[in-house]
Design a binder for these strands. Structure first.
Lengths: 243, 243
DNA sequence: GACGTTTAAATGTCTGACATTTTGCGCGCA
DNA sequence: TGCGCGCAAAATGTCAGACATTTAAACGTC
């Protein structure tokens, strides 16, 4: 099932790959216990530390979980949406920060994805989600809010919008896009006037969802995208002239 | 910078987290070399194997790469789109397969995301991408194609459609959604008639992109979604009656 | 100055041991 | 008989030291 040819080095990576493939192929079922480290070491004809390094690799991807004690060991993990979110967000954040993704490109992607959710959200949003949206809007309208708090509320607003689609796969996909934008958004200093404009557009979105009007939601999102893009360009320009 | 409180156990996880946080916070720049394993072991007051396990965790997430030899060591990795794709796909695949995500939900998410790309694709698709779409359509029309080959071509078609938007962030986000669906799609047996219908709709999409007609592309995608959904339901129903 | 050799630094791997945690079983006691 | 306590076993977590391997820089020779 999982032999290990004597390819070029890095045994722990090969072993991790073998086990990972077995999990993906369904040869190891969820909650099934893997052989103990000692047994794996014998199977692969390597030492225990090498096996351990392989298991740690898998643990980092939430593919397995380990449990100490008698009848403990490594178990195939049921990948939860929560864990997947976390990985998705860190990966997306790093991807954006390390590849010099421009504000424009990130913004375009984010709003394109959100617009994909809007019709579904208009159809399915719950009253509770609508209330959350309203509450966040109210928070954003408060004067004296720090930029970070404003951004955090913005993230909550948009995540709620996405969750409104009632499709966990969509929510998972978009969690990364929305949250990974936050560092970029945090670079923007929100003036009183820009906050007011954003709150107005957020209100328009919430109104559209309340009326279950997909078209209006799409329009408002487009306007918000354009406005956010303008804010980002101003920041970039100010930074360019200052330098 | 990265001390390590004596929280409850699993030192390697704590160390990995400390380094990961340092990378995300930008305290460690891309291509910067981390201290050697021995130095890290001394800093954190743990043994070298423990440090190694932590580093393997980070390597599994492509956060670092290691290089052997003199002046080798662990370096902060520039997360490339390719690596991110890979992780995204395996995570999404597992999420779908282990959480019993229904065909309907996955399908809805996938086509919602693709429709988000369609307008951008209509605007920006290159001639080369259009040619790829046409070539895949031609391949799909060939008789005697295995279901797996047909599915693979389908994936290529849709990934090209997504890439046509010319936004790498979008491509990254959607790679998971499209590829992770493949195992579910592979459960479908494509009859000659259903293949013909799919090819017709694919052609309609390609035509729309050629004319740069976003509306037509959206319509064709909606029809394809509905048709795919129907196919999936038939399979489920057949499976239910057989059981 | 070019080329081969040495050398040192670092990761990769192994061996063996001990610590810690958790479970299950058996023993003793009421 | 039933209950609880403690001990042993099994497994992971951690450590220490050693050796193997790889790689590039430093050195020496022609």
């Amino acid at each position: 099932m999982k032999i290990d040819p004597d390819k070029k080095s890095d045994l722990s990576a090969q072993i991790a790959k073998a086990i990972r493939d077995a999990i993906i192929a369904g040869q190891l079922m969820v909650d099934e216990r893997l052989p103990s480290e000692a047994e794996l070491a014998e199977q692969f004809a390597v030492s225990r530390p090498t096996v351990r390094e392989a298991l740690k690799r898998l643990a980092a991807q939430s593919l397995i979980r380990t449990q100490r004690g008698a009848f403990g060991g490594a178990f195939v993990n049921r990948l939860s949406y929560g864990e997947a979110y976390g990985q998705q967000i860190t990966t997306a954040t790093l991807l954006l920060s390390m590849n010099a993704v421009s504000f424009d490109v990130a913004c375009e992607a984010r709003y394109a994805l959100e617009r994909a959710c809007a019709p579904l959200s208009a159809k399915r949003r719950t009253c509770e989600q609508l209330a959350t949206l309203r509450a966040e809007i109210q928070r954003q309208a408060q004067p004296g809010l720090s930029d970070e708090t404003f951004c955090a509320s913005d993230v909550t607003f948009h995540r709620t919008l996405v969750d409104g689609a009632g499709n966990p796969v969509l929510s998972y996909q978009l969690a990364g896009a929305v949250e990974a934008m936050q560092p970029l958004m945090n670079m923007i200093t929100f003036t009183a006037r820009s906050r007011e404009a954003i709150v107005t557009l957020h209100t328009r979105i919430a109104d559209a969802l309340e009326m279950r009007d997909a078209g209006a939601a799409d329009t408002a999102l487009s306007q918000l995208e354009e406005y956010t893009l303008g804010l980002g360009r101003d920041v970039m320009q100010a930074r360019a002239t200052r330098a």
